[in-house]
Design a protein around this nucleic acid. Structure first.
Lengths: 211, 211
DNA sequence: TTGAAACACGAACGATCGTGCTGATTAGGG
DNA sequence: CCCTAATCAGCACGATCGTTCGTGTTTCAA
C-alpha cells in the first residue's frame, strides 16, 4: 500500500514475493471452493491440502478464519469485477449497459467461473442469517451491484430507451430476480436451458438486445 | 432388516406415544433451525440442547445424520403444505390459484414461518453443490412446487385469463424468480418493502389480483 | 555477503463433530 | 398387573475443527 518513510512508520510487515504468490494461490482456491463448500464449511485443512501447503503455513497468512473469509470475499470481488463488471462497463451507459451487465453475469455462470455459480448469491444465502462482518461485506457488495444496475436502468429511461413506468429500483429488482433464479436453477440442475429462460425473461422486461 | 413374523408383518418397531411426541418436537425444531444454521451446520448437540434432550437420546431416533436431515426435509414439507399449499388450493384452479400460491408464499415469508425464510430455498442453496440423497429430495420437492405453479398457469391460459404467449414454463420461471428474490432479499435485509416489490412484479406478469 | 525478517513446517492444544454402547426408566399390550 | 421393549441419559471413541507455538529455511535489503 505505502512505504512512506525509511525512518518513520515501520508499519505493516514488508511482504516477500513468494509470500504474496502463496497468498494469492490460497485466495484463488478459497474463492472457488467457497461456492461449493460454503465460506464456513471451507476448512483450513482442506484448503491447505488443495493449495499444497501445510495447515499452519496457510494459517500464518491470516489472523483468524474470519479474516480469511473476508480476504476470500475481496478476492471473489476482484474476479467478479474482471469477469462481469469490467467487460460490461465497456458498453455505453443506459440500456446497452444494462443488457451487458445481465449478459455478462449469465455468461460467467455458463462459463463456470465459480464452480458453485454466483459467489455472492452462494455465500449470501449462507450468511444472510449470520450477522457479523462477513454478512456486512457481502451485503455491501450486493448493494454496489444493485446500484450499478439501477444506474444503468435510470440512464436508459432518461435516454428514452425504456418506459419510465416501473421505476429503476423496481425494474432492477425484477432483472436481478431473473439473474438470481438463473444462478439457483443452473447450479441445482446444471441445464443451460435454465439460463436461456432468464434471457427470455430479460427480453420481456427490457425489450430485445440493442445493436 | 425385519423378523420373519409368525403371524404377519409386525414390521417396524412399534412406537410409543412419548416417543412420537419427542420425535415431532425434534423435527419441528430441526426444520426451523435448519433455515438458520443449514442442514449440515445443524449439529446434533445444539439441536438436542434446544429440544431439551441428551445428544444420545435424540440420536436414538435416527440411524444417521443423513436420516435426520431427510426426516427434517419431510417435516418442512408438511409445514410448507399447511402454511402455503393447502390455503392456496382452496382457490379455484387458474389465475386465482396462481395468485394464491404466490401470495401465500410471500405471506409465509412475512409471517416468518421459518426464521431463515423459505426452507427449500435455504437448504437448496446449501445442497445444490452436494450431490446425494438430500439434494435429490430437495430437488424433487422443488419440481413438485414448480409443477403446481405450471399447472395453475396452464389452466389460467386455457380459461383465457392469461395470454398464451409466454408458455406456462416460462411464465412460472419468472414468477418463481420473483418469489426467490423476495426470499433472498427479505432474509438478507429484513425489510418488508422487499416483499412488496415482488408483488408489484407479479402484477406486471399476471395482471391485477382477481376478485 | 550477511543478518533480520518473512515464510513454511510439524506437533500439539482444547473444543466439537457424528456415532456407538450400556444400563436405568417407563409406557402399554397381553 | 407384569413383562417386553421403546425411550433416553451417561460416557467414551476417533476424527476434525480453529488456533498457537517453536523451529528451521528462504528471501532480500543494507
Amino acid at each position: 500500500m505505502n512505504q512512506p518513510t525509511p525512518t518513520a512508520a515501520p508499519a505493516q510487515r514488508r511482504q516477500r514475493a513468494d509470500g504474496r504468490r502463496s497468498r494469492d494461490a490460497i485466495l484463488d482456491n478459497a474463492a472457488r471452493l467457497a461456492t461449493v463448500e460454503g465460506l464456513e464449511g471451507l476448512s483450513i485443512a482442506r484448503l491447505a491440502e488443495r493449495t499444497g501447503m501445510s495447515k499452519s503455513g496457510l494459517y500464518a497468512h491470516f489472523t483468524s478464519k474470519e479474516e480469511l473469509q473476508l480476504a476470500t470475499i475481496e478476492r471473489a470481488q476482484e474476479i467478479f469485477e474482471t469477469e462481469v463488471l469490467r467487460p460490461a462497463r465497456m458498453k455505453p451507459d443506459g440500456l446497452r449497459r444494462l443488457w451487458a451487465l445481465s449478459d455478462e453475469f449469465l455468461s460467467h455462470l455458463e462459463r463456470n467461473v465459480f464452480p458453485g455459480g454466483c459467489f455472492f448469491a452462494a455465500v449470501g444465502a449462507e450468511f444472510d442469517t449470520h450477522p457479523g462482518r462477513v454478512k456486512e461485506r457481502i451485503g455491501v457488495f450486493i448493494e454496489e451491484w444493485v446500484g450499478e444496475l439501477v444506474a444503468a436502468a435510470a440512464a436508459a429511461q432518461r435516454a428514452g430507451e425504456l418506459p419510465a413506468d416501473p421505476d429503476p429500483e423496481q425494474l432492477t429488482y425484477e432483472v436481478d430476480a431473473l439473474l438470481l433464479m438463473a444462478h439457483a436453477a443452473y447450479t441445482m440442475y446444471g441445464d443451460p436451458a435454465l439460463l436461456e429462460r432468464a434471457r427470455v425473461g430479460l427480453a420481456r422486461l427490457l425489450g430485445p438486445r440493442p445493436e
